[in-house]
Every structure is written in C-alpha cells, then in structure tokens.
Amino acid sequence: MNAQISRDERDHQTEAPETRRGVAPAVDIFENKTELLIVADLPGVGPGDIAVRLDKNELTIAGKRASAPEGNALAVEGRPGDFSRTFLVPQGIVADGITAEVAQGVLKVRLPKVSSQKPRQIAVKAS
C-alpha cells in the first residue's frame, strides 16, 4: 500500500509522467454481514482499462485514463495520470469470489466473506 519508492524510480517517474505511479483514487469502504465493498472513483477509465489484482493479501486497483481530448490545452486541472491504490485484504475473504464492476467511472469491488465463521463439528470416523 505504501510501497517505498527508490530515488531511481522517482527520477524515472518525473522524466516520464505517463508511466509514473498513479494517483490514489478516492474510495469508500463498506461492510455488511456477507461482504466488504470498495467503491472507487475512476473518472475517464473505461471497463477495459481497469485492472484489479490480488497478490497474497494485497488488493490493487489500477486504472488507465483515456487520453485527453485533442487540441491545445488551455487549462488542465488535476493530473491526467493514471489511478492506482492498494488495500490490505483481511482474513476470512473468499479470494476466488472477488468481483468487480464499473459504471460511469465508479468501480465497485465486492469481497465476499467466508460464509461460516462458526466453529464446526468434525466427524471422527473409526478406522
């Protein structure tokens, strides 16, 4: 989530703004009994340009912004750069059940919880 960036990397990033680490998008995180829900604002990112990766217990959302309209820029607010943000996923999440959907630049990632957290009785068989 807060990866250390070496000086070399940072120098490289300033030279090539297009390839540098993305801006952290604003997110909301919700939870109910069955799932965790991450909602992120990714304006200008199409469904095909979003990558949601789970590496061990780190969930990374990365979005590539569509290129700016053609023409001479008179005023540009904010960074035209890409989005990237990483979260730590708690225990008790079904990794295979994670789903993501995007609508109007808002990404929703659902992380379902393991259904039964209750202690379970394990049958003992006589051998």
Partner: peptide, 15 residues
C-alpha cells in the same frame, strides 16, 4: 482544450 474549430471541455463527474 482548443481544437481549432471547437472548444472541448472535460469534467470529471464519476458516478
């Protein structure tokens, strides 16, 4: 943005 024959204005309004 100034595109010559037109002005293009982009606003980030997610959701």
């Amino acid at each position: 943005y100034d595109k010559g024959e037109a002005l293009v204005i982009a606003a980030d309004v997610p959701g």
